[in-house]
């Protein structure tokens, strides 16, 4: 067994407890590094690091003025230098094994929701990467999900500025079919990999709210 993050071998003592536990593909030092949360005030809604602790940060207030808010936003890892590196390797060098590492950090009661919906990737990104980075993590965590959203967006989000993201038309649409039309009255969880400005998630929610779900929350692996 090797650690999928640092590739060193994991040697674990075999005792009664470890013998019957599923072995995790991450060594202790790496797990410690990746679980670190920077100290400081945080926005009570999107968990962004802010100078002064408050219920909603300017970003959230701005989004609330333009979009309908989700019920809550859950964030699993702090976007530290190490986590940044993790996502860079996972998304841009195509180190797909890291989906198992990220899956280890999902602490969320998925059972409270009727449906988990990952943010889709465009055809261009799919051709480049070969996988949807969000649903791959959900699969590694053994969380059932439904692909009811699709996108025709071409440019990479991380290359766009905030204004460009906001003025662009909503790139998401709901796939035809039973799943989308059965959203009414359901509790829905929208899952995204990295929450930067929040515009992506809010645009996806805009489409989902048209189907009148009972509640919609957001789960994001990390908050930039």
């Amino acid at each position: 067994m090797i650690c999928l993050y640092c590739h060193s071998r994991i040697r674990e003592e075999a005792d009664l407890i470890t013998m019957f536990k599923r072995r995790k593909p991450l060594c202790m030092p790496c797990r410690k590094k990746l679980s670190l949360w920077r100290s400081g005030g945080r926005c009570g809604f999107c968990h962004r690091l802010v100078d002064r602790e408050e219920d909603t940060c300017p970003d959230c207030r701005f989004l609330a003025g333009n979009y309908r808010r989700p019920g809550k936003i859950m964030c699993m890892m702090d976007y530290t230098g190490e986590v940044k590196m993790l996502f860079h390797r996972y998304k841009f060098t195509k180190d797909a094994a890291l989906s198992e590492v990220i899956a280890m950090f999902l602490k969320c009661r998925f059972g409270e929701y009727d449906m988990s919906i990952p943010i889709p990737v465009s055809a261009a990104r799919m051709e480049e990467r070969g996988y949807n980075q969000t649903s791959m993590v959900l699969r590694a965590a053994k969380v059932p999900y439904r692909d009811i959203l699709a996108t025709d967006k071409a440019a990479r989000q991380s290359e766009l500025g905030k204004r460009a993201r906001l003025t662009a038309p909503n790139p998401f649409y709901l796939k035809e079919g039973r799943a989308a039309s059965s959203l009414a009255g359901k509790r829905v969880l929208v899952v995204d990999d990295i929450y930067t400005t929040g515009i992506t998630v809010h645009q996806a929610l805009e489409k989902i709210y048209t189907m009148k779900p009972d509640a919609a929350d957001v789960l994001t692996f990390s908050k930039a």
Partner: peptide, 24 residues
């Protein structure tokens, strides 16, 4: 073998194996 990772890719329609030693 332990420095290879295998996963099923729906996009390629097959299993994909890649090398962890030189992925960087």
């Amino acid at each position: 073998k332990r420095y290879f990772y295998k996963y099923h890719s729906a996009y390629h329609g097959t299993d994909v194996v890649y090398c962890l030693k030189c992925v960087n």
